[in-house]
Design a protein around this nucleic acid. Structure first.
Length: 353
DNA sequence: TAAATTTGACCCCA
DNA sequence: TGGGGTCAAATTTA
């Protein structure tokens, strides 16, 4: 009995890994067609390889095949995820559509990549909870969290219905610092806006006016099967004059004082290196956080290298923190090389904030 | 009037 | 069994 359960789990993990591999391959195909950055393609390839290696290890029994996530997936959930896997005769067919939906949601939530950011905003920005990061979010819930002084807001991508974008984020005001919001992102944007933002970010490459400083990576734990840890960035903004704010307006940049003493405070790059996870970290930037909210965004060198940014880098107080300059828009770009100017970019009407 | 937000209820899981 | 996350109806906003 116990053995059978174990086998079922392995089969589920296998299915999950193969499915993931397939999806990643499809993403890669899409990126090939859109001449995305080499880093991004490399990352997708490494993820695909990892998925298949893991699947193989499950088949051969050489690995434990279970990770923190997949071992929680039940047989029922797995079947529900693949509606075609059971026919009318299955007792599962009696499960309501809503039940199916819910179970899919819970499973997807658990298996989606997630990472955390701490974003400091100045009071009066009117961005509480919204914290515009360039994506369109729709609030779908709010909960009081045990032990937390402030409620947690739940947001999902506006394009979820139209484009099936599964990205979600949680926003909670920090208990210790009311000006700091803890943002937890889950899932990767698959909406058009994501690729458009990526293009905007890439457009930073040739632009040199606005200073970016990536401050720190606060947390990283290999929570997701292998590559998607939780990483944190503390993003500060300051010194935006009216003109610059206008420039940033499409992304609603707030302005807050920078805490220079915290620059380089957290060394996460080395942690990544030690864990051979540098490549794995790429996805964190590849997808959403897209914090457009600072004119002062610090980036550790490992980020820089994974971004393919080798130019216009100044050394900051920390060896692990460097400053980039960019003129019109800023972000901790998930996408590596910044290839074209933002001037080349046009927002389709449906994506303007 | 469509889109966004609020909020109580529901479900899953530790 | 309670906490966290999500759904969806009701309400608000643009």
């Amino acid at each position: 009995m116990e053995k059978r359960k174990s086998m079922e789990r392995e089969q589920e993990s296998l299915t999950s890994e193969l499915t993931q591999g397939k999806e990643l391959a499809e993403q890669l195909m899409s990126h090939l067609h859109h001449s995305s950055s080499e880093e991004k393609r490399d990352f997708l390839i490494s993820k695909i390889l990892f998925s298949y290696e893991k699947a193989l290890s499950l088949l051969t029994g050489s690995g434990d095949g279970s990770d923190g996530e997949s071992k929680h997936i039940t047989a029922r959930e797995t079947m529900l995820e693949s509606p075609t896997s059971f026919g009318n005769s299955s007792p599962l067919s009696e499960i309501s559509d809503q039940d199916c939906k819910r179970k899919n949601v819970f499973k997807k939530t658990k298996t989606m990549p997630s990472w955390t950011e701490e974003v400091k905003v100045s009071s009066g920005t009117g961005l509480d909870g919204g914290l515009d990061d360039g994506y369109s979010w729709r609030k779908y819930g709010q909960k009081n969290i045990l032990g937390a002084n402030h409620p947690r807001g739940y947001y999902r991508c506006t394009h979820r219905g139209t484009q099936g974008c599964v990205a979600t984020k949680q926003v909670q005001k920090s208990d210790t610092d009311p000006t700091t919001f803890v943002l937890t992102y889950r899932g990767v944007h698959t909406c058009n806006k994501a690729s458009q933002l990526a293009r905007v970010k890439e457009g930073l490459k040739g632009n040199q006016n606005t200073t970016l400083e990536v401050k720190k990576a606060k947390q990283f734990s290999p929570e997701m099967s292998f590559s998607f840890g939780r990483a944190g960035l503390r993003v500060k903004t300051e010194h935006l004059d009216a003109r610059e704010k206008d420039i940033f307006s499409p992304f609603s940049f707030p302005s807050t004082p920078i805490e220079s003493e915290k620059v380089g405070e957290h060394i996460f790059c080395s942690t990544m290196m030690e864990n051979n996870l540098v490549d794995s970290y790429a996805p964190i930037f590849e997808s959403p956080p897209a914090i457009f909210e600072s004119d002062y965004l610090a980036v550790s060198p490992c980020h820089m290298s994974s971004f393919g940014l080798a130019h216009d880098v100044q050394t900051s107080e920390s060896d692990l923190t460097e400053i980039i300059s960019a003129p019109t828009s800023v972000t901790n770009s998930p996408i590596g090389d910044f290839d074209f100017s933002i001037d080349d970019f046009e927002f389709p009407p449906d994506c303007l904030v």
